[in-house]
Amino acid sequence: MPEHHPGPTTVTLSAPGIRVDLVGTGAALARVELTDGHGDGPVDVVLGHGDLSAYREVRDFQGATIGRVANRIDGGRFHLGDRAVEVPLDPDEPHALHGGPEGFDRREWTLVEASEDHATWSLTSPDGDQGFPGEVEVEVRYAVAPGRLTVEHRATTSASTPVSLTNHSYWNLDGEGRGDVLDHTLQVDADTYLPVRPDQIPTGEVRDVAGSPFDLRRPVVLGEVLAVDDEQLTIGQGFDHHLVVPGEGLRRHAVLVGGSGRRLEVWSDRSGVQVYAGAHFDGRVTGPQGVAYRPRAGIALETQAYPDAVNQPGFPSVVLEPGQTYASTTQWRFS
């Protein structure tokens, strides 16, 4: 008989005006349905998979918890003190990406507890997992309230190891499957950004956004700014860059407004936000409404630490030590 794989655990959270579906694969955010008076009836504003098995089978990170280390690691190599560490490369590029080919986004997480308005998932990442040292215990907690969705990440480790977690949701505020986001406006509260080499690894420079397409301190129309002739936009096929948000603690990182007028504010205590404008969608992924996703079907606003920080002494460290607790909070506020 063929081997049977049970489907992932699913959880639904709700509060007035908002319903959220979570999937145990990747502790992923699969649906964010808003009832807010914009348009007809509830609208799902986050991209997802039409088939739940695709969260395991298709590695495109939709809605997933990313770890151990979000974003790229140059050549999949770094040092922890005197120790050389090598982690698997991404199948499609010469660097490690988002924790490795079998990163946290591919795992079945354990549902710890759930109620009407919150749920917590846990994962044990063993010593040597995807090449990373130390056993890491991770928890992700989602909570909803009227007009608000919060995600909290926590992690501890048995040995020195890099930890940088994020959520990798793609947003389309006019509705999942309703075309591209080129008519959305984006504002990011960042004075600087990290330019990248042609292979998309940060150069190490922290560059002023002034005079560049990365000056998003005032709202810009995505279709207009992505059409600008700029070397960095060419490298990233549009935005695929980390913007540094000054300050500490929970603060606003970004504002996204759809053509419908629906508004999302992203608040976080992370150092910045990786803005990725969804260039890779090519029609092979189908969403819950049965619509194939094309380029710019959604935009990711990934609150996280600096990419490749393990190889960049000028960047804030992402190394977690035994006895420490990694803790981060991101809020999505809708209006």
Rank of each mutant, 00 (worst) to 15 (best):
V196Y: 08
V196G: 04
D199E: 14
Q200L: 15
G204S: 10
G204C: 11
E205N: 05
E205T: 14
V206D: 01
R207M: 10
D208A: 14
D208W: 15
V209P: 07
G211I: 06
G211H: 04
S212M: 00
S212K: 00
F214M: 10
F214Y: 14
F214N: 07
D215P: 14
L216W: 10
R217E: 04
V221L: 12
V221S: 02
L222G: 06
G223N: 09
E224C: 03
V225F: 11
V225Q: 02
L226S: 11
A227F: 08
V228N: 05
D230R: 12
T234F: 02
T234R: 15
T234Q: 14
I235K: 15
I235H: 15
I235D: 04
Q237R: 15
G238Y: 13
F239W: 13
F239D: 06
H241K: 05
L243K: 02
L243T: 01
V244K: 02
G247P: 08
E248A: 15
G249D: 07
L250D: 04
H253K: 02
A254M: 10
V255S: 05
L256S: 03
V257Q: 11
V257Y: 00
G259C: 09
G259D: 09
S260A: 09
R262S: 06
R263D: 00
L264Q: 08
E265Y: 07
V266D: 03
W267I: 04
D269I: 13
R270V: 07
S271V: 14
S271G: 07
V273P: 02
A277C: 15
A277M: 05
H280R: 10
D282R: 06
D282T: 05
D282I: 05
G283R: 03
R284T: 15
G287H: 03
G287R: 10
P288S: 15
P288L: 14
Q289E: 13
Q289P: 00
G290Q: 10
V291D: 04
V291C: 00
A292I: 00
R296L: 03
A297E: 12
G298M: 11
E302L: 02
E302G: 00
A305Y: 14
Y306L: 09
P307K: 05
A309W: 11
A309G: 01
V310T: 12
